[in-house]
Design a protein around this nucleic acid. Sequence first.
DNA 1: TTGTATGCGTTATCAC
DNA 2: GTGATAACGCATACAA
Lengths: 349, 349
Amino acid sequence: MATHTPESRKARGSGADIIQVARRAGVSPATVSRVTNGRSTVARHLAKRVWQAIEELGYTPNPQARALVSGRSRVLGLLISEITNPFFPELMQSFEDVAGEHDFEVMIGSTNYNRERARIFIRRLVQRRVEGVAVMTFRAESHFLDELIAENIPLVTIDVSANAARSLVLEVDYAQGIDEAVQHLARLGHRRIGFASGPMPHLTNLRRKDAFLRSVKQIGLAEQDAPLFVGDHTFEGGTQAALHFLGLDPHPTAIVCSNDMMAVGVLRVMAERGIRVPQEMSVIGFDDIHLAEFVNPPLTTVRMSRQDLARAAYKGLEQLWTENPAGTRGPIRVATSLVVRQSTDSPGA
Amino acid sequence: MATHTPESRKARGSGADIIQVARRAGVSPATVSRVTNGRSTVARHLAKRVWQAIEELGYTPNPQARALVSGRSRVLGLLISEITNPFFPELMQSFEDVAGEHDFEVMIGSTNYNRERARIFIRRLVQRRVEGVAVMTFRAESHFLDELIAENIPLVTIDVSANAARSLVLEVDYAQGIDEAVQHLARLGHRRIGFASGPMPHLTNLRRKDAFLRSVKQIGLAEQDAPLFVGDHTFEGGTQAALHFLGLDPHPTAIVCSNDMMAVGVLRVMAERGIRVPQEMSVIGFDDIHLAEFVNPPLTTVRMSRQDLARAAYKGLEQLWTENPAGTRGPIRVATSLVVRQSTDSPGA
DNA sequence: TTGTATGCGTTATCAC
DNA sequence: GTGATAACGCATACAA
């Protein structure tokens, strides 16, 4: 098999390889490798020649070969709940952007709250040898995280303790934004405020609810003036919440929702009942999804920055890689804050 | 370097390799390879032993090694316009699903109508050696497609002719859905129907507009009873379109929009002006994004199936791979159809 | 049908 | 600081 035509591989793609670059630059492949990997131990004039050869040949290192020999795939995983929830696409984009800045590719999968679907995706992740996974589902779906943990893959989660060595959970500061929301309503003169929470076994929803409870206590509301409704974070759930609160006597003059989709559901009910928002009812959401701007009226909501979240997740993975021996460096925090639009006003304005 | 510890590699991950599987099954690595690749030339009983060994060792073939030796990365690219347009996340999901069924991973990038951003993404695509790219931007952004074409990477586009050997354009049947929309309005008794188109240099928008024009002619409307407005497919553009049509005397009793975001903009203006939809104004969108269900009132719209589109795109790539010599096999078509919700009714109902 | 041997493109370990 | 050379894990041409 000594009859190897150099042209044979040139057939597909531009594909110059490290050896051709080395030849053209008059150095060894090893030196080329050192240059592309930014090793500083290469003489300046040689590095220059190498870069020029790279340029001229349009050489780009083969990531598969790199991954094979280095054992690092430069691929990350991102797990989200459902892609139709507008919160997630922006998160995906942000995460891909951060990852891209660091030369990582990202595999994205959505569970759609479907166990089997998630399992399949996770399997693909380990097969592709991802170097880390960001689990942004806001849910404790540890059953399928197990495989990741077994493979010892670095794991960053959100409001979900993964209970594994190489894992880390992001701390979202719900209190900040929700406090701003309640204070905002208080300033407008509201004294009866309902809270439509998300499904309850989930830590994230517990936290949002608790934050609300603390805030209303702080502005001096009695318990019965801060009624709760447990929804499910869907549009439907929002309509149910609205109906529930409207049935109360006296009913709240403002409703704070645990996410935007529910708030949109509330808005729908109000529209159908001819109850004007914000004059007769104030509504506040949570997340600040794109849609929040486009409903009638534009929704006042608590913004949780997707970009912050994404950067925090990546930062978390970085921490896990360096495996700083001095215990976990401080927790990684993500802020929230109120965005005032037009769904809030003084009661009876 | 004969001192190679077998345990050394076991340190990270579960990582059994093909040789260990071969040993355990009492066959050669080549046979294991044949089995995992579904070659039928392996004796049944041997295959069985191999599968068992694979199972017991939890072996999964290393994709990087596979890619390196086979020259095929099993990665596809997907280029979209902007992730905040709800049309695209569903398309992404569907495309990933099809790709996944065929053991492909997909790299996703959004241009955000930003040349530089697109360029960077394309570069990543070729570096990662993708085997094909689906360009679902609905725009002729051929400037950055050039690099893909130069690399001879299979390209499937939509309403954008790539003008390259290994490329193929999907044919969306706009006429079908838009015709249904116009017929629907005609049946309700509308005799003046406005059309808010998308930005005009784009082929896709030209097609939608032309389809509309043909349809209204078919139901016997005069030209002045089918006024046009050129918008930009944004919420803002929708509000402008609405204002424009409202300014006409007599103004249309129904507005058909070239996409859903514009329709939502129209809805907003109607709400602000106190014009009831659908009683005083009928509105129809295009795309059937998720949001269409959640606005007030739920939007009647022309559905372009993301799943169909995704499958068509994948099918297109498959065609390009097989490179059927008998010229391009028939064009790949994607259907559209009307979804009636509550934003349409008889004029003055 | 099965096994042996070689090469895919790169990094890492050595000598120099 | 630089250059040979051996892995990395797999698929495949060829021999058996």
